[in-house]
Write a protein that binds this DNA or RNA. Structure first.
Lengths: 331, 331
DNA sequence: GTGATTTGCGAAACCGCTTTCGCTTCCGAG
DNA sequence: CTCGGAAGCGAAAGCGGTTTCGCAAATCAC
């Protein structure tokens, strides 16, 4: 291990060719005879040669590296998108360089400058998946920028995100398929984009079925406590509600607790469906779920981000990833 | 933006000094008069000069980059440790390069080679926080390697991880302080290191108080379903149990559901405490918890990892981060 | 068989910065 | 006044590759 590191000129010398020939043979560029190419390659292997990535990047002016900008305390999406993208890109010797940053804060500028200084080949901006549009950073780079799990003010940005309308549709369709008709919805902030669109998609399917919410949509927070609180109100107002579509798994957990505490059965009296399916992504093994939920398709987002980054000219616009119902014990 | 990129020689020319003087002035190395230094710095600022990090790393032979090896689908720890470390290191223009890898699989070798080729300055290996020791990779690098959230077979490795014994102690101490005496424990795989040590720490405090488990420790899986199942058995065997220490929040959620379903009050009849406190780290805002839990100190681990990486000579051995009780509604 | 291409390879420039080394100049000690 | 040492700066040699360009040999068309 303390051995001298092998450089390309070592390989060239050992193979009896010039430095430039060795380079071209290994890279497959330029015209080199098959015989020479083979010979250089085998001697390189024999010596255990590996390119000095630093020197190579420097010479080429491209770093074989993708930068990632993310919000410091953002959600688990970050990790999944990161892990998936890293695996896909890693296979191409393309590494992922992580720059944490409070997107929207002033000091994102510092992160941008650092990334530019490192001559990254592309950027992934990972948002929070909900709430407000990210500011567009595309013009601050001269390499491709892809937004994951967020959307921007610029329609020409390349964006890959969850299909919140479809999440809402799937949830209600699933409840209808279980024979439920008295359906309510508990979700998060009224100004949150994801919450709005999930509610809209759900309402659409409901209307198509000639139904309406059994009680007005309850907007609140993305958390368990709100799920419990809202469910209590709901049960008081509509005692015979038979299904609740919850805007997140956390909300659904709070709701389930209160529904059960009221003496009702789940799913016997009230069916419950959440959204997220993060726990699946928490552990190595696919855990069996208790709560029925809608998986938003994080891994798919990660894969698509990686794929688009490798494409020469990704198509601008928002690309939605299709969510999926994960049926479990609460419906 | 399309402007030509400013190089150090541009700065040197504009300042009327040589290239080497400019370099030394900006780096603060070697002997340069205060006046020249100032002058070079202001002209650099004026031109908006920024070092080409690639060229610089290449010339220095160090990349100002830390490599991270992690298990592909590992838990949320990865993200927190990564985010915290990235923020700490980012301030020092030290970036984090992520290499996903199935640690333990054969192809971790490929990741190691890629990292070495990039002349990284250090490595963070992030484990799963539980289960088995990671194989030691220290000898395969010639830069410092720090293990987070795992432990290795080599006692000389630098490791920062959770204090599972203390987690167990804290949990039982907390339950005792709430006046509970009939305490049970539901946890994960019997061979899982974290599960074992939490159980051991808990038992220790229990014994000091002259008590023992009201029923033998129930080992099973890290999941909600197991929590429900084990709690049902437990209630049948010991109907007057007054507290359950659950090895994870997921297990605790399953247990709570069953306890409530049995007609018992939480925490009135049965107190519940979990371990993890991941939800806290899921969202931007600190959410209010329902379940009392033990926070394992992930962010602190991330901070310490970053700190040790910047130290010249980190002390070998395992360093345990102190956990903390987060009191909520179930105790 | 001749001239025009193509093929295969090496010499050398270059990427942008760091760092060694040597040359002046300045200063204080003797 | 002389000398030794330190301070301030520039020339130039890398760092380890990639890439352009030119040249000789081989191949082709006619």
């Amino acid at each position: 291990m303390a051995d001298q590191v092998i450089t390309l000129s070592d390989v060239a010398a050992a193979a009896g060719v010039s430095l430039s020939t060795a380079s071209k043979a290994l890279n497959g560029t330029d015209r080199i005879s098959q015989a020479t190419r083979e010979h250089v390659r085998t001697t390189a292997d024999r010596l255990g040669f590996r390119h000095n990535a630093l020197a190579r990047s420097f010479a080429r002016g491209r770093s074989q590296t993708i930068g990632v900008l993310t919000h410091r305390a953002s959600n688990p999406f970050t990790r999944v998108v990161l892990a998936t993208a890293a695996t896909e890109l890693g296979a191409k010797e393309q590494a992922i360089l992580l720059y944490d940053a409070r997107i929207g804060d002033r000091d994102v500028t510092e992160s941008i400058l650092q990334l530019r200084a490192r001559r990254i080949d592309g950027v992934i901006v990972i948002g929070t998946g909900t709430s407000f549009p990210s500011p567009s950073l595309t013009s601050r780079f001269d390499v491709p920028v892809i937004y994951a799990f967020t959307f921007t003010e610029d329609p020409d940005d390349v964006t890959i995100t969850a299909d919140d309308d479809e999440i809402g549709r799937l949830a209600v369709r699933h409840l209808l398929s279980k024979g439920r008709r008295k359906i309510a919805h508990i979700t998060a902030e009224p100004h949150d984009n994801a919450a709005q669109r999930r509610a809209a998609g759900a309402q659409e399917v409901l209307a198509d079925a000639g139904l309406e919410w059994v009680s007005p949509v309850r907007f609140g927070r993305w958390r368990e406590g709100w799920g419990a609180e809202a469910a209590a109100e709901l049960l008081a107002e509509v005692p015979d509600v038979d299904a609740i579509f919850c805007g997140s798994d956390a909300i659904a957990r709070g709701a389930e607790r209160v529904v059960r505490a009221s003496g009702r059965e789940v799913p016997g009296d009230v069916a419950l469906i959440g959204v997220d399916n993060w726990e699946q992504l928490m552990h190595d093994q696919r855990v069996s779920r208790h709560l029925t939920t809608i998986d938003v398709g994080l891994e798919e987002i990660g894969r698509q981000v990686a794929a688009h980054l490798l494409e020469p000219d990704p198509q601008p616009g928002i690309r939605y990833v299709t969510p999926q119902v994960v049926t479990a014990e609460t419906t």
